[in-house]
């Protein structure tokens, strides 16, 4: 099914994507696509270019070339705020919780970009911890709570495509499980999710497909149901 996505229906389509930080050429012609409602991961070693891929989609790198289309609309020339307004939301690897804002302000910060976002009550149902801590400064939260806040705040906006950069990095197993649960619920609600993960055991419990990123391009695609038979190859890619 995913392989057949060559028609017009992919939600996000990335073609021949190049990205640069100053003089360094980081992405070298990356290509992949995601259908509406899918959870897709980007796997790859440290420094492979996963974060840069997400930032390029958001327009956050200094210079990029190629084509990124959302529902057929070209994004490559748009500024990050315009891209966000088209319905893409980004949860950064470093979480990006603001210290000078309290938890509620952090939660309410991203403006609504489309109708149909989740209500604050629904977000509290996913992340009950946040409700207790509304008046705390954002960075007084534990790492796990900060991650929940970073995910929670982008659910309000109505964006239907979520870019999550290593949401489980450095978190205790219980919290990782909780976040996995939330991602499954979000999928059930119809969100489309592009997930960067180092932990492919975790990824395999959620994702429909996996793309492998190496040296700034997508070098392989593995459907989740064929993950087991590709383990050897994957271990080699990831160097584990």
């Amino acid at each position: 099914m995913p392989e057949a996505a060559g028609g017009g229906e992919a939600l996000l389509r990335v073609k021949d994507l190049h990205a640069f930080y100053g003089e360094s050429h980081i992405l070298h012609g990356s290509e992949f696509e995601i259908d509406a409602g899918e959870v897709v991961t980007l796997l790859g070693r440290n420094g492979a270019g996963k974060t840069t891929t997400l930032k390029s989609i958001m327009g956050m790198v200094e210079q990029r070339q190629g084509s990124i289309t959302l529902d057929g609309t070209e994004l490559i020339r748009l500024s990050p705020d315009r891209i966000a307004r088209r319905g893409i939301a980004y949860c950064p690897e470093e979480r990006g919780i603001f210290a000078s804002l309290d938890v509620e302000e952090n939660l309410m910060l991203p403006p609504t970009v489309q109708s149909g976002g989740m209500s604050v009550q629904e977000i509290f149902q996913l992340f009950p911890n946040l409700k207790e801590r509304l008046r705390s400064s954002g960075t007084q939260l534990s790492g796990g709570e900060q991650q929940m806040l970073a995910i929670g705040r982008i659910l309000r906006t109505g964006a239907k495509l979520l870019l999550l950069d290593e949401p489980t990095e450095g978190l205790a197993p219980v919290i990782v499980q909780q976040i996995g649960e939330v991602i499954r619920k979000l999928k059930a609600k119809g969100f489309t999710i592009l997930l960067v993960e180092q932990n492919f055991h975790f990824a395999s419990t959620l994702a429909d497909r996996h793309y492998v990123v190496e040296h700034g391009r997508v070098v392989d695609e593995i459907p989740n149901e064929r993950l087991q038979e590709n383990m050897g190859k994957l271990h080699e890619y990831l160097g584990v």
Partner: peptide
Amino acid sequence: TRFGAYLRAAVENQELVRAFGINV
């Protein structure tokens, strides 16, 4: 205020505030 929260957040991390859809 909400406007002030945008300002304070942008002081900390303009890039991210912009990626939330705010015209920094």
